[in-house]
Design a protein around this nucleic acid. Structure first.
Lengths: 170, 170
DNA sequence: ACGCTAAGGTTCTATTTTAGAACTGTCAAC
DNA sequence: GTTGACAGTTCTAAAATAGAACCTTAGCGT
């Protein structure tokens, strides 16, 4: 399966994976949330090859996650800043970091602590239900098809080689 | 940078990316949360090559995210079920799906809807601060080093080739 | 004028991953 | 005794990534 195919799956997870589902993209976004904005700053702190960094930045701009803004003319210099779409990735970043904090730390403890400026305390992110405000667990969630689901009955059912099916859900 | 190097970074994001940061792992985990458990079930619904599926399942078992349980002797057959460590990935999955729901759907709408059995309503996941209960936004969070951070002053500062640095944070 | 550095890339080859398909082995049913 | 399900393994070809060098515009020091 190609990356481009992922974007078109009728599955919100697959489509998001098409944007952030590689070795480097989440790391680049981490740097963005740490207020890094420039090519060399990303390259130095991540150790990513310049080739790949250029490629990933282009991709993130294409997806509307970052915006490429000139901050100097002659020579033209650009920096990359998060759009609202990019800022909305914050819950993903935080839940990824939190899982690492819980399950992947060594004996020395957490590499980083997060302080909530509103209340002044070190915190963990907690996922709650937007409707009732209770914490959500996998077993308490029932999933069912929405309007954008793949049609149940295939209109043209000429699935020639069903061996390598690519069906999917969200 | 190799995958193995990622696991050892002093950064909870990098370490988590070492587990879930590839094209297929999150998709496999989606199927797990949709109650799929068997090799062929994964392969059929994802269209992943059998080679890669075997590899990713092994990796997830090695990381303690899945457990490989025999459900039949002669012939020996196994199924893969989420451990608690695996179930704890749910907020990541949900925040990824939610971002896709908000930013990557086409005109037909969401492919899937999530119902919270506790309150009976369709919901979105919401990230709040564990301390004050308010929704968290990137600009309201201050990050600083924790006990597991890379030591600020290098004990043996013989960084021979500083050109290709690999520094990192969490 | 000359060399040096900085930023933001591009280009090149070598290595690693992934895709795609076929093959293996065990058992049960037809 | 052939077919089919299940859970993989093995093979070759194609794609992605690593690692390093190179390019361009421009400022600074001498």
């Amino acid at each position: 399966m190609k990356w481009d195919a992922l974007e078109e799956e009728p599955c919100s997870l697959a489509r998001t994976v098409a944007v952030i589902g590689d070795r480097w993209t989440l790391m680049i976004l981490r740097e963005c949330f740490l207020r890094k904005r420039r090519f060399d700053a990303f390259q130095t702190s991540l150790g990513i090859t310049r080739h790949l960094l250029a490629d990933r930045l282009k991709k993130l701009v294409r997806f509307g996650v970052l915006r490429r803004i000139p901050y100097m003319d002659s020579p033209k210099r650009y920096e990359y800043i998060l759009t609202q779409k990019g800022l909305d990735l914050y819950p993903i970043i935080m839940s990824v970091v939190h899982w690492g904090n819980v399950h992947m730390v060594d004996s020395r403890g957490r590499p980083m602590l997060h302080e909530h400026k509103l209340c002044g305390k070190h915190f963990d992110p907690l996922m709650i239900c937007s409707e009732c405000g209770e914490p959500v667990f996998a077993k308490e969630v029932h999933v069912h098809p929405g309007p954008g689901a793949r049609e149940a009955v295939a209109p043209k059912a000429n699935i020639s080689k069903a061996r390598t099916t690519k069906a999917s859900r969200a």
